[in-house]
Design a protein around this nucleic acid. Sequence first.
DNA 1: TTTAATTTTCAGAAAATTCTGAAATGTTGA
DNA 2: TCAACATTTCAGAATTTTCTGAAAATTAAA
Lengths: 176, 176
Amino acid sequence: MELKPVAKRFVLHWGEMGSTWGVNRTVAQIHALLFIAGRPLNADDITETLGVARSNVSMSLRELANWNLVKTVHLLGDRREHFETIADVWELFRTIVRERKAREFDPTIAVLRECLASPEFAAEDGVSQVRIKETLALMESLSTWAGEMIRLDAPTLMKLIKMGAKVQQFVRKGES
Amino acid sequence: MELKPVAKRFVLHWGEMGSTWGVNRTVAQIHALLFIAGRPLNADDITETLGVARSNVSMSLRELANWNLVKTVHLLGDRREHFETIADVWELFRTIVRERKAREFDPTIAVLRECLASPEFAAEDGVSQVRIKETLALMESLSTWAGEMIRLDAPTLMKLIKMGAKVQQFVRKGES
DNA sequence: TTTAATTTTCAGAAAATTCTGAAATGTTGA
DNA sequence: TCAACATTTCAGAATTTTCTGAAAATTAAA
């Protein structure tokens, strides 16, 4: 399966951005390929199109499954598993936020709570104590907020995002 | 400068999370150290406390400067440069969002725009065309939204985050 | 069953990233 | 201008991550 020029550009770019986004090149490329193809592909299609080892594709698909970004489907008359990703970009976005929250926030919140609960906490410098508390409070706020946002249905979420800073008119000044 | 137990835990954890957050361990550790110390440290303090090479500290501080996360200060009677990070967690958060947006979003938006503008775009599969357009629209929405959010002053931003999903009451149903 | 197709596993190779130490460069007070 | 101090640079070492290919395991038709 030979990619058309723009699709190729898209897949290669997604792959390059992968490391910034916390997944490796092949994982990101496979995701991009499934997304742009818009139909289920089997592992050999992917292997051939991307020019990587079959085993790499197998591992990367599992990684994408861990991210809840691919699911397997079966085509009539074909034994092989086929893979597809989420078609709706807002749904995709929600999934990525959910997973990144779980990877980038939750573990740190857990550690910070342990720090605060620790008997040694009282012996720390005053500044350190304050900073740890503030960091935890911030991360808890963000985590709660993100959790609530991704629970919204896609159209509502989209409207909120598109309102942008206009929502600030609903924040009463002076209220804490 | 020997770290107290909880501070040490904090710095080590921050370092481990670094790779998830897109910076390497030393960079993340230095940032954590400056944050928890709450006072300007010089490069030798950092070197000694973290047990890494002086040159590594130098490079990492530059990386943090590229992220706008540290600035240098001078103490009276001390020739050496001292480094401090942003004290306010909300300010810190805004800086990180601004920088991640610049690294994780802006380049992709640029590429997607080029894809759409390209003369080859018309020759792509129908699905691919739609998906690229939708991806660009999503990323532009998020980018604009993030840009507006980080422009808010810290107290307003905090209030909005704490409102969480309550803001959805201001989204009129049926409006697109 | 047996056989063929498909998928997964994993040890080691390849590649990429991070880190170090020595040397070069820059800076400031004497 | 010099010498001591401070900082940066960078080639190569160490480490980590990613990828491959061969073998093992799994699955499903014959």
